Simulated assay, not measured.
Amino acid sequence: MIIHAARLSIANLFAAETRKVFWKVLGLTLLALVALWFALRSTFVTFVLPWLQSFMPPVPDWTNWLTFLLAVLAGLGLTLLLALLISPITAVIAGLFLDEVAEVVEKRDYPADAPGKALPFAAAMRSSLRFLGVVVVGNVIALLLLFIPGINLIAFFLVNGYLLGREFFEFAAMRFRSPDEARRFRIKYGFTVFLSGLVIAAFLAIPIVNLLTPLFAAGMMVHLHKLLSQKEARRI
């Protein structure tokens, strides 16, 4: 079921019906990452670097290579920080585009089913911002574990698998259920949702490709919710 949902979502990425939202998601994600990069770099150069230099004694000119080395290390640190922030950025973008992605998936793959109901904009943004905070905290924990060999990658997948799986699934479920019903439905199939979240986390770990994480994750969870709902209906 999970592999089937992931395969359908990948197919949707390249479907003609998805092309419009594809470019919007990709463009907005790139724009957000570029803006965040310049904001982080400006903050470092304007505030952090002068503060660090205030603790350093004067050095001879021949040690300018040391300043260059520190600049390179700072650049690598900012890149790592930006990579860790991709996950919360995808959460915010997903809140803006999930309903549009869901509508495309539902019309394309489930034309006989009743369409879902889009979340009100205010409710979608509240949910996205709430999840943004949760993901930031989760990734800070993963960052702290980054320096423990053998645990860092496991922490990345476990944290992002749980958080991304939970939020994207509840987004998809709330098109057909109340928030409380969506949460209970997610808890009922919690292990399946978590495993699906691990697939999303694996997608997120692929450089460049991970810019499409919101589109992939939203489509996958729409399919998963549909498949689980059909399973539930057969059981009843």
Results as ranks from 00 to 15, higher is better:
222 V>H: 07
67 T>K: 10
95 G>W: 00
68 F>D: 13
92 V>A: 07
178 S>I: 11
105 V>S: 05
116 G>D: 05
9 S>K: 04
76 L>K: 11
92 V>Y: 11
15 A>F: 03
104 V>L: 04
163 L>C: 14
194 F>L: 06
103 E>R: 14
66 L>G: 04
154 I>V: 15
112 A>I: 01
163 L>I: 15
125 M>F: 11
6 A>H: 02
124 A>S: 12
208 I>A: 08
119 L>Y: 06
21 V>N: 00
134 V>C: 04
215 L>D: 03
114 A>Y: 08
81 L>Y: 09
199 V>A: 04
93 I>G: 01
205 A>R: 00
145 L>Q: 06
42 S>L: 13
149 P>C: 06
40 L>R: 05
67 T>C: 00
53 Q>Y: 01
141 I>R: 11
208 I>P: 03
85 L>G: 02
30 L>F: 14
71 A>L: 12
203 F>W: 09
213 T>E: 02
44 F>T: 12
78 L>N: 08
223 H>E: 03
224 L>D: 06
232 E>V: 11
85 L>F: 10
83 A>C: 08
132 L>P: 03
130 R>V: 04
191 F>D: 03
7 R>N: 08
213 T>A: 00
69 L>Y: 07
67 T>H: 10
149 P>L: 08
155 A>L: 08
159 V>S: 11
217 A>I: 04
160 N>A: 09
110 Y>P: 05
179 P>A: 05
228 L>Y: 13
79 T>V: 14
165 G>N: 09
42 S>D: 12
91 A>M: 14
36 L>K: 02
151 I>G: 12
224 L>P: 00
148 I>D: 07
227 L>E: 15
158 L>R: 07
200 I>N: 04
148 I>F: 14
219 G>W: 00
201 A>T: 00
118 A>D: 08
226 K>P: 01
141 I>L: 15
219 G>R: 01
26 L>Q: 09
53 Q>T: 03
200 I>F: 02
100 E>I: 09
8 L>H: 12
112 A>T: 11
141 I>W: 07
119 L>I: 07
150 G>W: 10
35 A>D: 02
51 W>T: 10
66 L>N: 01
50 P>M: 07
231 K>M: 15
9 S>Q: 01
11 A>R: 14
156 F>I: 11
147 F>P: 00
105 V>H: 00
202 A>N: 03
58 P>F: 10
51 W>E: 06
9 S>G: 02
236 I>A: 15
12 N>D: 14
59 V>E: 13
51 W>R: 06
74 A>I: 06
204 L>D: 05
